[in-house]
Design a binder for these strands. Structure first.
Lengths: 139, 139
DNA sequence: GTCTGTGCAAATTGTTTGCACGCAA
DNA sequence: TTGCGTGCAAACAATTTGCACAGAC
């Protein structure tokens, strides 16, 4: 599928979407990418962002972090790593420290008959900024 | 907040929503709950299901498992436990085995300044049924 | 010519909300 | 009476899609 990705690709806007994804640690939404690209590509459309994100997800170059406040958030760092989501401001932060060992798959699979392909760990709470500003969890 | 929940509640339909949630292990969507309740409450509306789910989430009696195929899925078992999501049929399964220790919070919090309030572990892949029937991951 | 990527706007879909009514205190 | 729970339908918002066109080959 890397081959497929290599075959089927390249256009200025498509590349730009991937570059934005790779150049940020903010785990963006489609809307955010759209707004970042508009200055340089004034005629880009949100549909294009969505279409290309979907392609990148199929090819494995981008991964979804889940949906925050109703918007899907994406990540171009595809090695599994834990995320922290601030329930006040919606910020998504990488927690590079402490990863679940990637071994337990086989044990679980043997017992359950499942075929596990990925896993994710997500912490929720208040980010440092929101703690400082006395924000409260919006739940 | 248990007190608040105890004060503000009780209506046949509201109780019915919570009972459905507590009586299933299927991690239902609002739509699913609605369809289960309709035989007994033919005039119940989807809005009521959503409104009451939101209340239960605020009171902590129900928790969201995340969104699967565009629909939010809920769980009345609120103690943290890992989930498996089948990327072919959308089934959500409890993995009672193997839970991340709940200790690491303080270590992470000290280093990062975050206030962690919850965490979740989610595995994705194919469930036993879909493996057997040769289904493929829809990604 | 064909094929692919795109803008645009319309359609779709899950969820929320405004309003009026009905019931219980 | 006041207040809360609800049905209903409209509103909303994120995402998808149909269509016509542009540009690469």
């Amino acid at each position: 599928m890397i081959i497929i990705a290599a075959l089927r690709k390249s256009s200025r806007k498509r590349d730009a979407v991937l570059n934005v994804m790779r150049g940020t640690r903010s785990h963006p939404s489609a809307q955010w990418i759209y707004e970042v690209l508009r200055p340089e590509y004034p005629d880009i459309s949100l549909g294009t962002v969505y279409r290309n994100l979907k392609l990148f997800i199929e090819s494995g170059e981008v991964v979804s972090v889940g949906s925050v406040d109703g918007q899907e958030r994406y990540d171009a760092r595809t090695e599994p790593h834990p995320h922290f989501i601030c329930t006040s401001c919606g910020k998504v932060i990488d927690l590079d420290c402490e990863m679940l060992s990637d071994a337990p798959y086989s044990g679980i699979e043997d017992k359950t008959g499942l075929k596990i392909e990925s896993h994710s760990i997500t912490y929720k709470g208040l980010c440092a900024d929101c703690v400082q500003h006395g924000k409260r969890s919006s739940h």
